[in-house]
Structure formats: structure tokens, C-alpha cells
């Protein structure tokens, strides 16, 4: 598979969404919580509390929706500022109750529109990034499809970032890159290549810690082993003091471009 095949696979409507992962991993234990307490409940972001084996966790995901009706409702996984503010509210809550946080990332990007700008899309993302940098509870982010720029990063300032083998994470969409750089949208595949956006590229660049094998819809065992893996990592990070945890996260990001 070349880079653009990966992009296509990551965008496929057959791809499992955040909700699919939550249902398979947490089953009935997941209790969804709503709203940012400021403006609205953004359905592009789902969040709540659940049990990971015996540990209470906070789970947050960017959700594209599983059929056309759902996708419309969820704005195709493109969050407004209130979505990021809901996520931050739940993360602060997790910190208060000393619950680890698991984020699922799947978005083409933060929504570009009048309302989003009026309500401070840039400010909302900036605040999430800044607060997550110092959150005193372990965080894992898992990319399960598309990771579009700042809108993905707003849920991916974590102690460890993992990606499914067919997922991508990029500063700009290959279409956007091709049209800005070459004024030629037909060179999208070439742009995908040079952006180094596949899970495999990002692992080589040291931007992510782990590549996860793509689980099939009903591959019960795969979700179980993902749970075990998450549990082990969260437990390892829970053993750090709050200061060590935050300092380790700071250094994780501090090293990028420091050469």
C-alpha cells in the first residue's frame, strides 16, 4: 500500500469508528456524558466514563458516524469549539477523580465554518493542547482513521500515541497540500507521499509509540488484547508521581525539532 492507499483506507466508510471501539471494548460499562456546559453538545465528540477491566477510565472519541444519518448528525467527525470544550471538561473531570484518559482520534480536521470561528475554534484547540500538556492523569491517544491537523492534536497530547496500521496523521490534507504547493489538486497522491503521514512513517519519525494491527469488526480477541495493552500502559504511567508524569509528557513533545 502506498501513502495515498493508506489515506483512502483511513477514510473508508467501512472503517470502525470511535463508537465501534467503545462498544466492543467497554460494552455496557460505558456511560455517555454530554455537553460543554458553555454552549452546546457537539455530537462530533463522544465522551463518557467506563470500566477498563477493574479500572474506571474516561473515554473520549471523535466520531464520524456509522451511516449517512449519523454522519450528518455528527458533522462527519469535524468538531466545533464546543466539541473540544466538552472533551476538555471531561478530561478535567478525569483528573479530579484520578481516572486515566483514553482518546480515539478520527477526524479530517476541526470544522471550518462561521459558527466555529465565531466561537473560537483556534482558542478552543489551543486551550486543549495547553491543558493536556499538564494534566495530572495518564493519557493514551489512539488514531483509528484520519488524524487531521490541529483538530486531531487537540485530543492527542498524550503520554503515548498509537495508530492503527491503516490510519494517517498529518499537518494538512494531501488535497490541501497539493493545491497550495503545486496549485494542482490532481497531485494528491504525490502530496500524501511527501507529507509522511502514514502510521509507519510516523513511527519511524518517533512521533508515535506503537502501531496497532487493524482489528476486524467481530474479532473479539483483538479488542481484548488492545484492552490489555492499554491497561498495562496506563498502569505503568499511574505508578509515576504526578510531577514525573507531566514532566515525561513535556519531554515527549519537547524533543520534536530539538536537534
Amino acid at each position: 500500500m502506498n501513502a495515498f492507499d493508506k489515506v483512502t483506507a483511513a477514510r473508508s466508510v467501512d472503517k470502525l469508528t470511535s463508537m465501534d471501539f467503545i462498544e466492543r471494548m467497554f460494552k455496557d460499562s460505558f456511560i455517555e456524558l454530554h455537553g460543554d456546559r458553555r454552549f452546546a453538545d457537539d455530537k462530533a465528540v463522544i465522551g463518557g466514563v467506563a470500566m477498563l477491566h477493574d479500572t474506571p477510565v474516561t473515554v473520549i472519541g471523535l466520531e464520524k458516524g456509522r451511516n449517512l444519518k449519523e454522519r450528518m448528525e455528527r458533522n462527519f467527525g469535524m468538531a466545533h469549539p464546543e466539541g473540544y470544550r466538552k472533551a476538555l471538561r471531561l478530561m478535567k473531570q478525569a483528573e479530579k477523580f484520578k481516572r486515566p484518559i483514553i482518546c480515539f482520534v478520527d477526524t479530517s480536521g476541526a470544522y471550518c465554518g462561521i459558527g466555529a470561528e465565531e466561537r473560537g475554534q483556534g482558542q478552543a484547540i489551543a486551550e486543549n493542547i495547553m491543558e493536556m500538556m499538564a494534566l495530572k492523569t495518564p493519557i493514551i491517544s489512539i488514531f483509528i482513521g484520519e488524524g487531521g491537523s490541529g483538530g486531531a492534536l487537540a485530543l492527542a497530547v498524550a503520554d503515548e500515541v498509537w495508530m492503527l496500521e491503516n490510519s494517517v496523521y498529518s499537518v494538512i490534507s494531501p488535497e490541501g497540500c497539493a493545491s497550495i504547493l503545486w496549485k494542482d489538486s490532481s497531485r494528491t497522491a504525490e502530496a500524501a507521499e511527501v507529507l509522511k503521514l502514514t502510521a509507519q512513517d510516523l513511527f519511524k519519525l518517533g512521533v508515535i509509540e506503537r502501531i496497532i494491527r487493524e482489528p476486524k469488526k467481530d474479532e473479539y480477541k483483538a479488542f481484548e488484547s488492545l484492552k490489555v495493552l492499554i491497561g498495562r500502559t496506563l498502569e505503568k504511567n499511574s505508578r509515576l508521581s504526578e510531577n514525573e508524569l507531566v514532566e515525561t509528557r513535556y519531554n515527549r513533545f519537547r524533543k520534536f525539532g530539538n536537534s
Binding site: A126, I129, M130, E131, M133, A134, S149, G150, L153, V157, Y169, S170, V171, I172, C177, I180, L181, L195, K196, L197, L202, L205, V207, R249, Y250, F253, R254, F256, G257
Partner: peptide, 22 residues
């Protein structure tokens, strides 16, 4: 962000924000 540096430019958002927070 500078797209010619790919994901590494995006990481600068987190890096700078961490320093602001401290």
C-alpha cells in the same frame, strides 16, 4: 504550521503550549 515539515510542524503547537503552561 509549516507543511514542508509535515507532522513535526504540528508537534510545535504542543511543544510551545507546554512551555507556555509552565
Amino acid at each position: 504550521a509549516r507543511m514542508q515539515e509535515g507532522i513535526l510542524s504540528l508537534m510545535q503547537m504542543a511543544k510551545t503550549s507546554g512551555a507556555v503552561k509552565k
